Amino acid sequence: MVIGTVPALVPVCGALLVLAGVFGAAAVVPTYLVVGGEELRLARGVWSALVALLVPAVHVAVGATLLRRAVPKFGLAYAAVTGALAVGQLLIEIYRGSSSTSRPGVEVLAGERVLTSGVQIGAGWVLGVVALGLAVLAGGVGMAAWGRTVMEDRGALDPVRSLLAGTAVLLGVAAALCLALPAADVPDELRTDPATGLQTVVTREGPQALLERPGLALLGGLLLAGALLLCSVVAPSLRPRLGAVGGLLAVAVTVFGAGLGGLRDAVVSDDLDWTVPGMGLVLVGLALLGLTAAAWRARRSAT
């Protein structure tokens, strides 16, 4: 590995990424939203807190490597992909806190099934939006610094790069399809007519799917799905090898975190069940983490 010129933008990107992680972690504790007079928090126990802290912890860890100017293109690739994915998430969060009452509907927020007829923002929502905004800014700085940063290797990943890219694209498509449906949903209710004993299935209104939401949320959903597909294509092609590792790690953490979020909602709420798309997100996230590990371990045999 040869590391040459490292521009001043690299530690700036690292600082923004660390701040995004810190604000994201801080958003776990205070009130997230007040819906119908009920205060919602992102963490309602140790398990939900660990799930909510997963992505912020990775942000801080990767941002710290950029602050030390160590393997800079690893961190820059992570920041750029994270920033691209955070744009859609930011628009969805803005919709939840400011526009969801214009078209009230059943939604799952912080593991609670609520009707968004009245929503007031809390400190947790503000901190979360700031964290996403910092992630987007870090991504922009990371892309600006990428071409000015000199970091090369011996091409250890080149023999398997096409296989890696094909697998990543398939996993990206699977993740986008799973994201389109709720990771935790309301199960149908089975009712029995006492007079006839006939059982019927009654469909209960559940959370809105990603692309069923209006306005900013719909735009955010489309951007998130599109960015996920694009980043799955681009990440394996990044050079050097650690650049591909950083890009794949960002995709993997986002997908895995979304799947665990659905599991968290199903665990903490009696009204929700973990869905097949939610399980799919966890499996795809684990597969992407495995792909990231494979890229990390790739070495060219000594000749």
Results as ranks from 00 to 15, higher is better:
54 L>S: 14
197 G>Q: 10
184 A>N: 03
110 A>S: 13
123 A>T: 15
259 G>H: 04
137 L>K: 08
93 E>H: 13
241 R>G: 06
6 V>S: 11
287 A>V: 04
122 G>Q: 09
75 G>H: 13
1 M>S: 11
7 P>Y: 10
14 G>T: 04
97 G>A: 06
154 R>A: 14
216 L>N: 02
283 L>Y: 01
102 S>C: 00
71 V>T: 14
224 L>W: 14
248 L>S: 07
36 G>T: 08
18 V>H: 02
34 V>I: 15
152 E>D: 06
182 P>T: 03
2 V>G: 05
223 L>G: 09
74 F>M: 14
241 R>D: 02
165 A>N: 07
281 L>P: 09
26 A>T: 04
153 D>C: 04
64 A>M: 07
221 G>E: 13
254 T>C: 08
212 E>K: 05
102 S>Q: 10
98 S>Q: 12
271 D>I: 01
266 A>M: 04
272 L>M: 05
141 V>D: 02
195 A>P: 08
72 P>S: 10
26 A>D: 07
294 A>F: 10
19 L>G: 12
132 L>E: 01
279 M>P: 00
77 A>I: 10
42 L>P: 00
245 V>G: 11
143 M>E: 15
66 L>C: 11
273 D>P: 00
302 A>Q: 09
163 L>S: 15
275 T>M: 07
228 L>W: 09
104 P>E: 03
221 G>Q: 11
110 A>R: 00
40 L>F: 03
229 L>I: 13
187 P>D: 06
235 A>K: 11
223 L>Q: 05
215 G>H: 02
244 A>L: 05
25 A>H: 01
169 V>L: 15
227 A>K: 09
247 G>C: 11
271 D>S: 14
55 V>K: 00
55 V>Q: 01
176 A>F: 03
190 L>A: 06
262 G>H: 06
248 L>D: 05
18 V>K: 01
173 V>E: 11
35 V>F: 06
64 A>D: 01
207 P>I: 00
292 T>Q: 10
162 S>V: 15
189 E>F: 14
64 A>Y: 05
294 A>K: 00
268 V>G: 12
201 V>D: 02
37 G>S: 10
185 D>M: 04
198 L>H: 10
217 A>R: 10
207 P>Y: 00
260 L>F: 07
143 M>F: 15
12 V>M: 07
16 L>T: 07
270 D>G: 13
281 L>T: 08
